[in-house]
Simulated scan of single mutants.
Amino acid sequence: MHIDLSGRTALVTGSTQGIGHAIAVGLAGAGARVVVNGRNEERVDAALDSVRAASGSDEVTGAVGDLATADGAAAVVDAQPAVDILVNNLGIFGAAAPLEIDDDEWRRYFEVNVLSAVRLIRAYLPGMKERGWGRVLDVASDSAVVIPAEMIHYGMTKTSLLAVSRGFAKDAAGTGVTVNSVIAGPTHTGGVEDFVRQLVGDELPWDEAQHKFMIEHRPQSLLQRLIEPEEIANLVVYLASPFASATTGGAVRVDGGYVDSILP
């Protein structure tokens, strides 16, 4: 299967590192003109260089803006008024005692993980519908379905993203635009390494720490290892392609079999 996204413009939010960075590399490698997003100009510039080097494409630009705020989202839309592919990847996570999460933290997680996506869908979906082609992809998590006791506030936001995706898919019905969420399983990123250490300690070598984390905290995984960001990116690139034209309104899993369900 040869995926050719030449002539398409893709915005990947939160793409200076981790899963977002891998998605940006994958889309650029498939021929799309990719817009890298982050809150900090220095980090965006560094990511531009690394995405170009990894993908072999020079069709990579940046849009700086904190999408957790309306002003930041407006700045990104001003920098890139129209896109064909929107990947809402931006997200924060972390462990917290459930009864100690205060109102401000609940609001912060919702602003970053949910409203950032909604703001950009509102901005870009009308143009996609008008042009008769588009892809909206919201990066969710296994935590949307299997809510971790230590990350209830995070799980809540990812469950919300599933609803956001399904609802906007209905809004885009019959227009040639597809809207899907991607349920990513436990993935090997710098942030997750920090999270693993938070739960299992700093004493063990990384391979042993990762194994202990999966056995004790994510035993449902059928892979029994963390997923690599490129494995998430592969699914996103496919869903962004013409080959996925009949897939919309879905919650598509790349979770290593973590969610114990036959249906999505």
Rank of each mutant, 00 (worst) to 15 (best):
V139W: 04
Q80T: 15
N234Y: 10
E228R: 14
Y124H: 10
I101A: 13
N180V: 00
Y124K: 11
W106Y: 08
V136C: 09
E228M: 09
A173L: 15
V252G: 02
P81M: 05
K129I: 13
S57G: 02
L204Y: 03
I92R: 15
T178G: 05
L235C: 08
Y238M: 02
A46H: 01
L239R: 00
F110Q: 13
D207I: 09
A140K: 07
A73T: 14
M151S: 15
Y124D: 09
G176A: 02
F213V: 11
A30S: 10
G134Q: 06
R119T: 05
T187L: 10
A95R: 15
G29M: 04
A73F: 08
I23A: 07
L239M: 03
R33C: 00
D71W: 07
G191W: 09
I232C: 03
G250R: 14
L48S: 00
F195T: 12
I227W: 04
D207H: 13
D45A: 14
D102K: 11
N89R: 11
D71H: 10
E111K: 09
D103P: 07
T9P: 10
V179T: 11
V60A: 02
E42D: 07
V12C: 08
D66K: 10
S165M: 10
A172Q: 13
V112F: 02
L115W: 08
S141K: 07
Q80D: 08
A244Y: 00
Q198N: 15
W206S: 10
P98G: 12
S143A: 15
R135T: 01
K212Y: 00
G7S: 06
A79H: 07
V254M: 00
Y154S: 04
G201R: 02
E111P: 08
S165D: 09
V12E: 04
L125H: 01
